[in-house]
Nucleic acid binder design. Structure first.
Length: 391
RNA sequence: GUCCCCAUCGUCUAGCUGGCCUAGGACACCGCCCUUUCACGGCGGCGACAGGGGUUCAAAUCCCCUUGGGGAUACCA
């Protein structure tokens, strides 16, 4: 309907040039050192011309008919101020494709008008096509919306980050275990800041404090490290119940999906302080369920094979064997007893213990882990460490 | 090529109406402290006004040029 209106008013016209012909045309222009541009060859077709093309079975596109004379078009942008373009630089843009579908340019103008859109906030890449949208509005007799062209999100090499290239769709971040609140908070800070040093802001606060005047002009690199930090922050804050609910789909993807639910719940709570993303739960789960005979890292071997380590293991094994019940609260007591007995303390005491018990050199609080693992398992692993050294 | 946008630490940024900036914060990195372990946390360190001209008593802040980066130049959005 809008296209028909424009054609009737002489602001648009059917164009029968085929993609192949356009290709050829541009190639020749480039060869002659000219900028590739539609040359307007179908701007003024006669009725006969049209009939001839129709008879050939050609389906036309509809193109905007930009003014013959050069005009100055000024875009008033909420973040960039006034930006001037020359209509001469613009092309007779296709607004309806040969399959009858409108292109973005026509669709966005018509759609926004019908929906009563007052503000168009879009990325900077759209700034150069805004003059076209302004023409469309003008010809259709509509008041254009207010525009704000936001800075681009950039890859590490400072090129434009595109949702059509790479693994950067919002869904991809969800799949990688990032929380919506973390992503939103992080994204809000790319190209905008509240003006003070506040960085951690939940959505309601973001909404309250946001103002378009404080939007920056330069593009910003998407820094995964900072996102990680923020994600971890929100993860640590989270109540255990909600965390477990969010963790479920990630647990479901692992080999441990069928384990006892109460146990999984306990593990998730234990592991919370060590999570950077939800997906990290997988590797931590492995820590609890890995088979005793699994291959060990060089670090684990290094810290479990010292003379001091062996001394600690023997003492701890004895302590543990004599303990009726092992809990997160009693574990440190056992370690304390070992310290007294062996005179080993601090890192040289805890590090080998952790490595022998969890088969990792890092992880959540050892007492908590030990509680989940249970007495029998720990005894078995200590024996294993002892026998490894004996061999 | 042409048009347009942009330019403060490695990254995100504060600084916008010029003096309070020997340029502040955050992430990352490095120390120290806390913790008998891991992490959290606390403290500190490293680290930037792209260059050159102006304007001014005074410029990161205003103007110009250069350089650099990015975007757009599709029957994609």
């Amino acid at each position: 309907e809008a296209a028909d209106t424009l054609i009737a008013a002489g602001h648009a016209y059917p164009c029968y040039v085929t993609p192949d012909e356009l290709d050829e045309m541009r190639k020749q222009q480039v060869a002659r050192g000219l900028p590739p541009k539609y040359d307007g060859r179908h701007r003024n077709l006669t009725a006969e011309d049209r009939q001839r093309f129709e008879a050939q079975g050609r389906k036309p596109v509809v193109r905007m008919k930009l003014p013959e004379r050069d005009e100055r078009v000024v875009v008033s942008d909420l973040v960039r101020g006034k930006v001037a373009f020359n209509s001469k630089e613009l092309d007779d843009q296709v607004i309806v494709k040969s399959d009858g579908y409108p292109t973005y340019h026509l669709a966005v103008v018509v759609d926004d008008h019908r929906m009563g859109i007052t503000h168009v906030l879009r990325a900077e890449e759209w700034l150069p096509s805004t003059p076209k949208h302004l023409y469309l509005c003008k010809w259709l007799g509509w008041e254009p919306p207010l525009y704000a062209h936001l800075p681009l999100l950039l890859n590490d090499d400072r090129s434009k980050m595109s949702k059509r290239k790479g693994d950067v769709a919002a869904e991809a971040y969800r799949a990688k275990g990032y929380l919506p609140e973390a992503l939103v908070n992080f994204l809000a800070l790319l190209g905008w800041s509240p003006g003070d040093d506040t960085e951690l802001m939940p959505l309601p606060q973001l909404i309250e404090r946001f103002s378009i005047e404080r939007v920056t002009k330069a593009g910003s690199v998407f820094d995964r490290e900072k996102l990680n930090w923020m994600n971890q922050h929100y993860l640590q804050q989270m109540p255990a119940e909600r965390l477990f609910a969010l963790l479920r789909p990630f647990v479901a993807k692992t080999a441990y999906a069928g384990e006892d639910e109460a146990l999984l719940r306990k593990i998730c709570a234990t592991v919370q302080p060590a999570l950077v993303t939800l997906a990290d739960v997988e590797k931590h789960l492995g820590l609890f369920f890995r088979p005793d005979g699994a291959p060990l890292s060089a670090d684990v071997l290094r810290v479990t094979e010292t003379a001091t380590a062996l001394q600690v293991f023997r003492a701890f094994r004895d302590q543990l064997a004599r303990t009726p019940e092992l809990t997160a609260a009693t574990f440190p007591l056992l370690v304390k007893a070992v310290q007294k007995e062996t005179q080993v303390q601090g890192k040289s005491l805890w590090e080998p213990l952790r490595a022998a018990i969890t088969l990792e050199t890092q992880g959540p609080d050892l007492a908590l882990v030990a509680d989940v693992l249970g007495k029998e398992k720990i005894l078995a692993r200590l024996d294993l460490a002892l026998s490894r050294s004996a061999a």
